[in-house]
Design a protein around this nucleic acid. Structure first.
Lengths: 138, 138
DNA sequence: CCTTGACCTTCCCGTAACTGGAAGCCCCAA
DNA sequence: TTGGGGCTTCCAGTTACGGGAAGGTCAAGG
């Protein structure tokens, strides 16, 4: 399988697949002409990674998950811990974003949004100090 | 005012303030010794930016907001539009994250999390294809 | 007067996870 | 043989900074 087919079948851009090889997530073989020669197992791994990424796991998480996945003697406890930590981070991001949404929608609601220069949003950015949503969502 | 004081009073790290100067958000004067000499107006701008950042606005949004803020003839409509677009993005990120949270917590719930290798989380990453939360939260 | 330590300066590298683009092979079909 | 698409590598850029090195400056203490 060449990279184009793998890209089509995994849903990942070829660029991304090359990147995953570069950082050692996969190790496709090579044809004599230098083209990457993907096995079914490579495709399978890529699909695994794609789904993990879609759940928001970082690349390093994916690497760990992949290692666990391939380890016959893994303990599901380790997988669960990793996933739980990730879930916690997601929950915190949601909280941060909801705090932003709250503040922002109040400001927007208060703004006439017409041709006049008077604007509660800008005023809010000037004076407000009550709400501190934290460090952003990264 | 030197950068240390401005950092203390604005809550922004000195590094960040230098960065904001580098990208042209502020333009502090310079003392003869080469130290940045901040005016009250610089501090004010930095505080403005800090609050906008805390609401999740990008640096470029901040630049635009600052320009609107300093424009006597702005129309609040323009501010509101910018804020509304940002709010929409936030709402979408929240949706994405909630979808991830949902899927992830189902998988976690189903996982025994003990010493055995059997793990629904890994299985989910292998097979699942029903839920596609989109492009991540970026 | 000299030293010490806290500031300040610039400069460069690293982050996460790619994406875009350039320059150049390779392969197949007309 | 020529054209077009696919493949290769390498380099640069993205966002918003943070870390750290090398070195100038300033005020206080001995």
């Amino acid at each position: 399988m060449n990279i184009g087919e793998v890209a089509a079948r995994s849903g990942l851009p070829a660029k991304t697949i090359r990147y995953y090889e570069e950082i050692g997530l996969i190790t496709p073989l090579r044809d004599v002409n230098g083209y990457r020669a993907f096995r079914e197992s490579d495709l399978h791994k890529l699909a695994f990674i794609a789904r993990a990424r879609a759940l928001g796991f970082t690349i390093e998480d994916c690497r760990a998950l992949l290692a666990l996945y391939q380890d016959e003697h893994r303990e599901s406890r380790d997988v669960k811990r990793l996933a739980q930590r990730h879930l916690d981070k997601i929950a915190e991001k949601i909280r941060t974003l909801e705090s932003m949404r709250e503040t922002l929608s109040e400001l927007i609601e208060a703004c006439a949004g017409d041709h006049r220069p008077d604007c509660p949003i800008l005023k809010g950015l000037c004076e407000e100090s009550g709400k501190a949503p934290g460090k952003g969502v990264a």
